[in-house]
Design a protein around this nucleic acid. Structure first.
Lengths: 118, 118
DNA sequence: TGCGTAGATTCGCATGTGCTTATGTGGTTG
DNA sequence: CAACCACATAAGCACATGCGAATCTACGCA
């Protein structure tokens, strides 16, 4: 594979590279955990307090708070204090769309793998 | 928050839980690395050999092969041996759509954070 | 002011992940 | 066959990440 092909191929430029670095550390990393996906899913239709999310997930409070911190620091969810509780809501509903695409791809891939095994 | 609220809230069932477990280990984990995103992006328009991808990413061959193994094991890319080289292509173009949604959300969030700092 | 509740944060640990170096393997060519 | 090429894989290390336990902070109320 000679260096002549470089022009045909195109080396990825640093701008795109940096953008994907940020994309991973900002969004993908936040979606890379089942509980965080469940949280986003739980907030899909309504905002919830931390206690409610703990009940829904069946996870200890500190754990849920830690996951919420990850989502909050990256701006994916919004915290709103009401009295003694803190209610969370998703800031970008499109996120759910992206997750749905991944779910659909996962479904197709599961089918394919089932076929292969025949 | 009393246990009475359970009926209003709804505990997430094990089915959804397992599905998100698989979603993370199957798809999200694969997308949780800048180089793997670059690989998918590079394969967006055409299939590429490992050597070409190495040139495009400017990464050592073993490293690229390892990333390709991650994508291949999860069925996100397809390997096709032609002579002495192996050409890879993406199996599900929708993946790029999902990535684009995340990119757009990242853009919005960057704007928002810039506003906050004013 | 003191107490109780809801939530956030810190710490230590076990586990996972990416990278480099080194080696193995399939296919082509002489 | 041997030499070579493109690629895959294994080993080891440095670093990140999720978790539970404990502690800290903010708010409401008597």
């Amino acid at each position: 594979m000679s260096a002549f092909a470089y022009e045909d191929i195109g080396v990825v430029d640093d701008r795109l590279r940096r953008q994907f670095d940020e994309l991973v550390s900002g969004m993908c990393k936040a979606l890379n955990d089942p509980k965080r996906l469940l949280i986003i899913y739980a907030l899909r239709s309504a905002s919830r307090s931390v206690g409610e999310l703990c009940d829904m997930l069946g996870a200890p409070q500190s754990n849920v708070s830690q996951h919420l911190a990850v989502l909050r620091d990256r701006g994916l969810v919004e915290a709103d204090r009401r009295g003694n509780s803190v209610f969370y809501s998703i800031r970008y509903p499109e996120l759910v769309d992206a997750i749905e695409i991944l779910r659909s791809v996962m479904g197709k891939e599961a089918e394919r793998q089932a076929e292969v095994r025949l």
